[in-house]
Design a protein around this nucleic acid. Structure first.
Lengths: 199, 199, 199, 199
DNA sequence: GATGAATGAGCATTCATTCAT
DNA sequence: GATGAATGAATGCTCATTCAT
């Protein structure tokens, strides 16, 4: 087993342990036992416990980044609606394909420490800005409701995060991505209440 | 200062410390220093570190419980819409009035340990069932869209949780409850996209 | 309840707690709870935890002292044998009447700390010297076997201590003193083996 | 130094510390200092403080068990008297060779906690039963005096325990085993008093 | 490189003792 | 005197990290 493989092995087992036990309850002991390497070997490949954790989250965030594509209203080949759905389906699929990382990202990553929180918020901010920006742009095109687009972004992201968390916790399979996308998309288009909104 | 006050004092300072540092980084040392009591005094009022934490969360959840009231479609004095808005405003106000607890509940409470997680999920499940049940009832009355009401519940709760978390992190004041309620209510009624939903 | 009584009350309850739990496992909390006085009251009557313990042992040792009377071979009214038997019966009765103190003296008193151990050894030494001295005297009178009288003293005291300890632990009642005295006396006179001793 | 040696090293130093200070006054700090290992190393080899202590006692009790051999009255090669003397000499030698363990066993082991006390009593009971059984058997063969054999067993064991304790405390050397055996054997055969026993 | 034994700083918790009321 | 809340020194134990082999 070469260095690359060994590193990947530790990373993957660390991910499982973090997902199962949570960052604090996960002991280096658990990780090296799961990865079938010696304690010292762990430190040959990673700076420290925080190091593996951060790398796991960073890698996943990078993939998340790739999954989110800017909507182009002028794209002649795909409607805005289609592009939005594609984004949603890509994001849901990414998360549903990696349950462990979903759990880690949603429950352990925030609160690790001040430094990491800052970085996480920066990434999060970027996603929110992209989303809020798109909403603002969409308002100009008449395809987004009037209102505080930043709040729209929070509500949208929160709705999806919760759906993902519950899906992963309750064990929805990844095939659900399509169905869940429809539900989310509908929710974004028309909400769930059919009550005159006088506000 | 009598026992009740002293207990409240420690509880309040522990809350601040947990909110600021997170459960694991919060040391008993920090708590007693903040509460200006001796180490031993802390253990006079609470079983252990977990004990204060659990009590803080339990108390807050109890208040949350009181803030959520069942919607009565037959109430002649208040429309369903008004009742929903009142619920939302009560919940948002509760959280915005106690930033520390909001942070604790949203980032530290899940992941404390298996036992507490179970309890937390049970409470959460109750809220979700109430909401999903109301949605199902609402579908019969024609005031809730067709679809998986459990998913609606996840999306709704997630949207509100995220909004709250961001509000608290970014420092929105509690006066925002009214405005945020309007945004949430609109979102629930009409979503945010104005795109034909062919799904 | 006056001071004397209160003091006696605490002393008696402390004795029970020490006997039941042992010195280290006995908490001041247990003692004051058993004596039905406040924590602070305990310290009005006794220096500290060690203080009560030492007083209990001292008092008991004083009574033990009184129970052991020098054998007078010239006493015309009582034979030596009778005097020895009386000593044994008095000692056994004293211990059997106060099970708690028996347990405390035999298991907790030695090992309390270096200082107390010294004192205890001094008392013990006195008893041993008295006994060994009597044995030596007895050798002159032909009523004690030849041999190291100090060793005789150890063997005698040890035999009685163990018998007492077992009697108390197994719950012999104090009425057994007479019977046990006969057993001990016989043992001292003739041993238990009927084998020619060629040594 | 390999694992076995290191373990033995800690065990031996812990024994010395327990013997010198007593179980409760012995701090982990003292043990690791004496063993010249780090605090954590101690916990690498033993469960906890109670763990080392129990292991020390268990090991010693196992050796004690081996030292005590059943008397066979039909053995043509050795008289009963010789077998008894051999038992006594083996037991005395074992204890006199390990002063620290003698002190630990006699003063610290009883009273550690309820669980250990139970185990200890069980071992003790076994020895007593063996002894009392032998005495009963001996009565049938006419080589043991009439009387309560269980009491004989208590008296015998107590006499030896005390002799050992004093020997160790006062620093008799192990060469004394032979002489002490003679004294004990005589004591068991003929007692120490030369007074007509009319009981 | 790999190993796993060794390290020791760090922390929660206990409990004898004090002292303001 | 009596009370019991408050105190804080003391200590067992954990676990991330290091380093000799």
């Amino acid at each position: 087993m070469d260095k690359i493989e060994r590193r990947a092995q530790i990373l993957a087992r660390a991910r499982d342990v973090f997902a199962k036990r949570g960052y604090h309850a996960a002991k280096i002991e658990d990780i090296v036992a799961a990865a079938k390497v010696a304690r010292g070997t762990f430190y040959l490949y990673f700076e420290d416990k925080r190091g593996v954790f951060v790398e796991l989250v960073d890698r996943f965030l990078a993939r998340l980044h790739l999954a989110i594509m800017r909507i182009d209203p002028r794209d002649p080949s795909r409607t805005v609606a289609a592009q939005i759905r594609e984004n949603i389906v890509r994001v849901l699929t990414l998360f549903l394909q990696d349950r462990a990382m979903t759990k880690i990202l949603l429950t352990d990553a925030p609160g690790l420490d001040a430094d990491f929180d800052r970085k996480l918020r920066a990434v999060y901010e970027e996603v929110l800005n992209l989303l809020a920006g798109s909403f603002t742009e969409g308002q100009g095109l008449g395809i987004v409701a009037a209102g505080d687009t930043r709040v729209f972004a929070y509500l949208t992201v929160g709705a999806i995060k919760e759906l993902l968390y519950q899906s992963v916790m309750l064990g929805f399979d990844e095939g659900s991505a399509e169905r869940l996308t429809s539900e989310v998309f509908s929710f974004l288009c028309r909400g769930c209440l059919r009550i005159p909104d006088e506000s």
